[in-house]
Design a protein around this nucleic acid. Structure first.
Lengths: 201, 201
DNA sequence: ACCTGAACACCGTTCAAGT
DNA sequence: ACCTGAACACCGTTCAAGT
């Protein structure tokens, strides 16, 4: 009778978008399948037609987060393909910015909520692609003498780990006030990063 | 009538211990207040006589985790108080070992489960004390020329962040197989750490 | 002070049934 | 194929009541 048969075309995507909004508004604790369903305007059991369980929805949201992160890294890095040092700095800062501006998405992407036994192919794929991008930047930096010679994947994990660690500790509130009072986030991040970078000339 | 009046002396502590066991056995997702109460042999509402809510129990478990971490760091580091370079290496490796051997405790300590609006004084205190210990080691290393001159708290965050980031990415399954096949955890960790360390002599 | 049991609102998940 | 509604087992939390 009614013109809208069930929902409309793409409930699967509507559920992901609803999840992202709830995550941003209510945080990781407020994200329930039932609330997502309600926000998308369907019954609480409708999501099961598109996701086998809650984990799968979370995987889909995380995948979306990684796509956004990849895009932002790319935007930050592309303009400086002829300047490796700058490229590294801009990419690093984009990573930190993404984490700070999308705390809950970042947390859901990395905070162990995702059980890794099952493989979520799309998630693994974009995650791999992002790492590859980092490795590429690292390689260029090594060729330019900005980063030390070493297996590029190894160096990429140092750089990524350094940024990821500092930003994680920060989001956790583990950086003492005594430090935050004296130094900006930018100073902290680049002090750490600069130790991995060879001095100019 | 029965000799055991309610539980015994120290239900509060029994609940924490029960929580730690459940965490180790069933992981972070299996940790519920009701299960903890059952394991301690009391009704599901008994915990509320000792903890205002679930968060508080989690804070208590995290505090216990930090105490253990502090103790293990201390044991690893103390024997080498006359050898700063060795002290740093042993402390770093102890941190990584703790994270790997107590994955779920480590995750609950750092994975954003704890809302930091409320302050849990015991948690903040042991967390602060642990950071101070790291700063002390860093300071000694700087005086010995093992770490670069810089504000010690700043350098401590670089070192801690580097270790924390790598171990977090590892536990998340974010280190690609292509890397794990070629390098051991120890090699990855010390490759990264060695970049922060000045070469010997 | 410490604990119980019933009650409430909220979960994730399943399943028969409807279109 | 896509969705609903009832049902089940499980939560966190509250509260009157018992010792």
């Amino acid at each position: 009778m009614s013109l809208k048969k069930y929902h409309h075309g793409d409930l699967k995507n509507a559920l992901i978008q609803a999840g992202i909004k709830i995550l941003a508004k209510e945080g990781i604790g407020g994200l329930s399948l039932r609330k997502v369903a309600q926000k998308a305007g369907v019954s609480h059991s409708a999501p099961y037609a598109h996701f086998p369980d809650k984990q799968s929805l979370i995987a889909a949201i995380s995948t979306e987060g990684f796509k956004q992160l990849y895009a932002e890294l790319d935007i930050a890095v592309s303009p400086y393909s002829n300047n490796p040092r700058r490229q590294l700095a801009e990419g690093a800062w984009a990573y930190v910015q993404f984490a700070i501006n999308n705390t809950d998405t970042f947390n859901i992407m990395f905070s162990g909520v995702l059980e890794k036994e099952k493989d979520y192919p799309a998630f693994v794929e974009i995650s791999r692609k992002t790492f590859e991008r980092v490795v590429d930047v690292v390689r260029v930096c090594q060729e330019a003498g900005v980063l030390r010679p070493a297996p590029p994947e190894m160096m990429a994990i140092s750089v990524w780990g350094q940024l990821h660690g500092i930003v994680s500790l920060m989001l956790e509130g583990q950086i003492p006030h005594t430090v935050l009072d004296r130094f900006s986030v930018r100073e902290i991040v680049f002090f750490a990063l600069n130790q991995l970078i060879s001095p100019p000339q």
